[in-house]
């Protein structure tokens, strides 16, 4: 059971870059945490999500 932003999703085996794209996020607007730790942007393509991982994709919106 892999969770993305609190919901169970079929993303096991995908890397972070693929997941960001799959859910339609703009890569320039996100910060991604895997099991509570930030995933450096440079490692999105090489970081593969495993079974039981918890992923949080924070997608920023404009205004301030």
């Amino acid at each position: 059971m892999t969770k993305v932003n609190g919901k169970t999703e079929a993303v096991t085996g995908l890397n972070i870059a693929e997941i960001v794209e799959k859910f339609g996020y703009n890569p320039a607007r996100v910060a991604v945490e895997l099991n509570g730790a930030i995933v450096p942007k440079a490692r999105y393509a090489e970081t593969v999500v495993k079974e039981n991982d918890t992923l949080e994709v924070v997608s920023f919106v404009g205004g301030g």
């Binding site: 703009n26 320039a28 607007r29 996100v30 910060a31 930030i38 450096p40 942007k41 924070v58 920023f60 919106v61 404009g62 205004g63 301030g64």
Partner: peptide
């Protein structure tokens, strides 16, 4: 406390990393 989403993401990633 930026206004642009890209700038927010840049700062947050830079600090957390």
């Amino acid at each position: 406390a930026f206004d642009k989403a890209e700038a927010k993401a840049m700062l947050v990633n830079a600090i957390l990393e």
